[in-house]
Design a protein around this nucleic acid. Structure first.
Lengths: 349, 349
DNA sequence: GATTATCGTGCAAACGATTGCAGGCGCTCG
DNA sequence: CGAGCGCCTGCAATCGTTTGCACGATAATC
């Protein structure tokens, strides 16, 4: 037997057959081509020798790597690890492996990553990096199966699995409205991301839904879903003299930024201003105050994205793709409280 | 030209040379074997055609995949993403890619992961999953270059990069002692992990260092570095009637568990009990109260681990390996306060 | 009993790159 | 002027699998 890892020909020799026969006997799909008891013999030999196929050689021949590229803007954002877990779990069940790449939100790093993935022959790609109008990904999508997660591009050319953002912010503003808030601000996320734009739009709609008229002076856009941008946005709102008693932030990170801005100005949450976030990131219940936010099913989104992708890979390439939108749920914690006016009234009564 | 991705022979044809020549011209290492201006021609042709080598085919021949396996217990633990970033960045600079696997702290899942990695021909492995006495990894280490991160095995057979745990907990108890605390508890991590055992030992030493005698009744061991275990440990301490005014937790997650246990029992941090954590995980400054903890250089640890590993791969296999231990720093926030006794005295004066 | 279908297996050519070996050419040097 | 030496470059084998094709044997058909 040759040295090093055992290979197909070793098994063949041991079983007294040709390597090709071993190959056929070992694959579920081609097993029927070989006599049942030779198959048994081969299987036994493979078992005894502890044969494991060399995936490199296999890939070279078949052009499939059983590898899925996962493009993330930033693994450090607590939003993503649970999604990745979901993705990995679903992929593993199908014998696939995830290859994770951070893009830092830089288009060129994304380009480089896509390139790497493509040349490494990933069988498909799950991207969380898409900007709303993303030519790069759209182009890449023509070359390999792709699905988006937590993002969406303008013309639904790429299937996506997303949380029900509209419902989420609706629940948020209804909650605020029910608490008596009438002047509600929006510390919005970047508008070049679908999540940012969708939530902003949903915010406007939800406000009208509860009979409030949107006020442009109560809306400020951040340039990223980050703490700094959240703080900056809130500061600029306050700076401009806007008056409001509650705000909904683009996501939890921005909400945390708002916390910072608030304490910096000696304001209290929720006494002066109620804030609600988005995502229910890990430890959102441990913040000061515990953050009211809308919970999205991170893990489930990951699973669904992976399953969707696998379906497109294995499948006939059809399933033209309704986006999958998963339900969300408002988690009420201590960062929201009745509006001051109502508290005053209650105190008076 | 053949269809699909451009390959070596396409470039060869275009440049009017043999594929072998192209191969040599394209590799920095072998370029000197080919005439300077043919090399130019080849380079130009490759550029025009947009040639990118097929790493699968290359790997098959060279037995190198330029892939590094990264074994994590749990990507969802906020400790790890920054490390992964460090690893990825350092690897990318050298043209390597990281393959991330979660083991969920299950030895068999780790085994499966290692197996996958090995058969996928990873060139090396960075593991954060090692238990103190880890036969599995020790064995795997004989088959491929490996370095440990944030973990250590008993007999230093595998090089590791770790934070200076001893110094960290020393700083923590000195801080507490300086605040006047005399009865300091330890909500320790699992002892089968090096981090758990080291910190426990360091705790004992540090206590004596400030002239306090360790009391076994003030120490409780968790079975995992988790919130639940932190809460459970603290509960059992309190249940047993232990009296103390401060505690150092095995890590930040356990500290958060302590927060939970404290509020559940109507105790206040830091008024009744000061707590200090370990790791300075993201958002530790946002907790209620902001957590005093010791900061470890996550990102840097990742980088160093990757660099160390690459050195072992490229290099002569020497560097027998002192462990790399990186400095840590106590970050004082609001979860620690002067001991009640001292506060009383201050109030009296 | 000759002819055709059926089944099981081996042969050999891929996949796309790397690399030892050999050979052609032009020099120099004795 | 011929032997010898360097420098380039082409040839062909190789990495470990998969897979179309052909071949031989056995079974089914008329």
């Amino acid at each position: 037997m040759s040295p090093g890892p055992v290979k197909l020909s070793d098994v063949a020799e041991r079983a007294g057959v040709h390597p090709a026969t071993v190959s056929r006997a070992l694959s579920e799909r081609t097993r029927h081509m070989v006599n049942t008891d030779t198959a048994q013999r081969v299987l036994a030999a493979a078992e005894e020798l502890g044969y494991t196929p060399n995936p490199i050689a296999r890939s070279l021949k078949t052009n499939r790597s059983f590898t899925i590229a996962v493009l993330l803007p930033d693994l450090t954002n607590p939003l993503f690890p649970p999604m990745v877990r979901g993705i990995e779990d679903a992929l593993a069940e199908a014998g696939f492996t995830a290859l994770i790449a951070n893009t830092d939100n830089h288009p060129d790093r994304a380009l480089a990553a896509v390139e790497t993935m493509r040349t490494r022959l990933a069988d498909g790609c799950i991207a969380a990096t898409a900007t709303r109008d993303d030519g790069l990904l759209a182009e890449a999508a023509t070359e390999m199966p792709m699905v988006l997660i937590n993002r969406r591009v303008l013309n639904h050319e790429i299937p996506a699995v997303v949380a029900d953002d509209r419902s989420g912010v609706r629940q948020a503003v209804e909650h605020l409205a029910a608490l008596g808030h009438e002047r509600i601000a929006h510390v919005a996320g970047p508008q070049w991301l679908a999540t940012g734009a969708d939530r902003h739009e949903a915010f406007l709609a939800a406000l009208r839904g509860v009979g409030l008229e949107p006020d442009p002076h109560l809306i400020s856009f951040g340039e990223g879903f980050t703490e700094e941008q959240g703080a900056r946005s809130l500061h600029s709102l306050l700076e401009a003299g806007a008056k409001f008693t509650a705000l909904v932030a683009g996501n939890d990170l921005m909400a945390l930024g708002c916390y910072d801005a608030l304490v910096e100005r000696g304001l209290s949450c929720p006494d002066d201003i109620s804030v609600v976030g988005f995502n229910d990131m890990p430890f959102a219940d441990k913040f000061n105050p515990p953050l009211t936010t809308v919970r999205i099913p991170h893990y489930e989104m990951g699973r669904r994205a992976a399953e969707l992708l696998l379906g497109r890979i294995e499948g006939d390439g059809s399933t033209p793709g309704e986006d999958i939108v998963l339900p969300v749920e408002l988690i009420q914690r201590a960062s929201t409280a009745p509006a001051p006016s109502r508290r005053a009234r209650q105190a008076a009564s």
